[in-house]
Design a protein around this nucleic acid. Structure first.
Length: 444
DNA sequence: CTGGATGATTTATA
DNA sequence: TATAAATCATCCAG
């Protein structure tokens, strides 16, 4: 703050020095508030008046006078006297010892910018730093995929930051050069020690670095905001659309025997769901795939935990699936009859669970002609048809007619409730001990 | 406002 | 590394 005043004074002195001499009147020393009496006020008034009356002509005159003064034979002597006087006053020394201690605030900002990858080395190390910082704050999951958006924004901030920084630097340099030139020129008429120039440069630099600090501060704020928003967005839960849930549920219940969608299946589901889940902003495919994985993880665990609760849902989707698939199956049946049902039932399915009716649904519905699944259709048509008949009958008022517990059992689950090491599931609806309360919901 | 539903995250495990 | 299980955080119907 003090510096600024001093700069202004110095600069003012630079540009006006020549003129104020005119009236034989020097500016009062900047310090010394003591005794601003009327007389001095009067002086100031005079000075102001003189300033106001400066004209081009007077400027030219001043220039001429200055030149004259420079050429005066007494000038060197006068100059040395002035130097001596100035030396004695010791004005110039003051402030030279202002070795600016590293501002802790600035250091903090610098460190943070470095850690966030905003400042520091370009792309290479920078992104690594960013990744490291992100990994430190987040979890294992936020590696590359989910970070792309965040990174893009961070890069944006980084670019702006660097551009601005450069601008400031350039301005600072320009200004410094300008002032130096002025001072150098002035040094011919008044004594200016190199130390003084140095001090001036220091002042200018400090001034500009304080501006830079503001830039850094606002950059930090921007990063923080970006960060919090990003994290919030991650934390915030958005329910899937009804359609998406529908699709996922259909897959889940039709693959109850092995509800572990392959990468391709996930992709397929993600694609189908992303149409409706797109509210998540720029949801990339990989992101939606991630959501699908989450969903299946949650679904599996919750289904297993409380199968009873999901019975209704299971039935609902089984029925739905069946109805939807009925036509397809019918077609398949015809196909298999007209063509040959020779497709080897084992096919390539090695250890893969045999698809139940639902599996087929997917093969028709989702994978849409996936050869590997499709091949099994023919092979299993017979049992499928049976299954379907059963299920369809349920559609029209299930539960009551059949004792209320003819439901989809967790046929994929083994005794432990594990899915993974199960024996080949019996792809049929068996009224195996309806876990817990097989409360037949008669309403619909 | 509350409790259940549900998507997301974290931790443990094979 | 994928998944299970536990837990967190938010949504939402009642």
């Amino acid at each position: 703050m003090d510096e600024q005043a001093r700069i202004m004074q110095a600069l003012g002195g630079v540009s006006l020095a020549g003129h104020s001499i005119q009236g034989g009147m020097a500016l009062p020393p900047p310090h010394g508030h003591d005794g601003i009496d009327d007389g001095r006020k009067q002086d100031i008034g005079d000075i102001l008046h003189q300033i106001m009356t400066i004209t081009d002509q007077s400027l030219d005159e001043a220039q001429a006078k200055k030149h004259g003064l420079n050429c005066h034979r007494m000038k060197p002597a006068l100059f040395s006297v002035l130097c001596e006087i100035k030396e004695k006053t010791g004005l110039s020394i003051r402030g030279a010892q202002e070795e600016d201690p590293p501002d802790p605030q600035l250091m903090r900002l610098d460190n943070m910018l470095l850690a966030e990858g905003v400042s520091g080395p370009e792309k290479g190390g920078g992104s690594a730093a960013a990744a490291a910082a992100a990994a430190a704050s987040g979890g294992a999951s936020d590696n590359s995929i989910e970070h792309s958006d965040y990174r893009a924004k961070l890069t944006q901030i980084r670019q702006i930051y660097h551009t601005e920084l450069e601008k400031y630097e350039q301005a600072c340099n320009e200004f410094t050069t300008h002032v130096m030139n002025l001072l150098r020129e002035q040094s011919r008429t008044r004594p200016i020690s190199p130390k003084e120039i140095e001090r001036m440069v220091g002042i200018i630099h400090r001034k500009f670095s304080s501006i830079q600090m503001q830039l850094k501060q606002s950059t930090c704020e921007a990063v923080m905001i970006l960060r919090s928003r990003f994290l919030d967005a991650r934390r915030k839960r958005r329910n899937f659309s009804k359609q998406a849930t529908e699709i996922l549920n259909e897959y889940f219940y039709s693959h109850l025997s092995n509800p572990y969608p392959s990468e391709e299946a996930k992709e397929e589901l993600a694609k189908k769901c992303s149409i409706t889940v797109s509210q998540v902003g720029a949801a990339s495919l990989s992101q939606t795939q991630w959501l699908v994985s989450n969903w299946f993880g949650n679904k599996r665990i919750r289904y297993k935990k409380n199968i009873g609760k999901f019975q209704e849902e299971a039935n609902l989707y089984a029925a739905k699936t069946a109805v939807t698939a009925a036509h397809a199956v019918a077609a398949a049946v015809q196909n298999s009859q007209t063509n040959s049902p020779t497709t080897p039932n084992s096919g390539s399915s090695g250890s893969f669970n045999l698809p139940n009716s639902g599996d087929m649904f997917l093969s028709m519905q989702s994978l849409n002609g996936d050869s590997y699944q499709g091949a099994q259709v023919g092979a299993n048509v017979q049992s499928q048809v049976d299954t379907l008949r059963h299920v369809i009958s349920q559609t029209a008022g299930y539960s009551e007619a059949l004792g209320g517990n003819t439901m989809y059992s967790p046929h994929g689950l083994n005794a432990n409730g594990g899915w993974h090491d199960t024996t080949t599931p019996s792809a049929v609806i068996s009224p195996t001990e309806g876990p817990g309360s097989v409360h037949s919901d008669t309403s619909n």
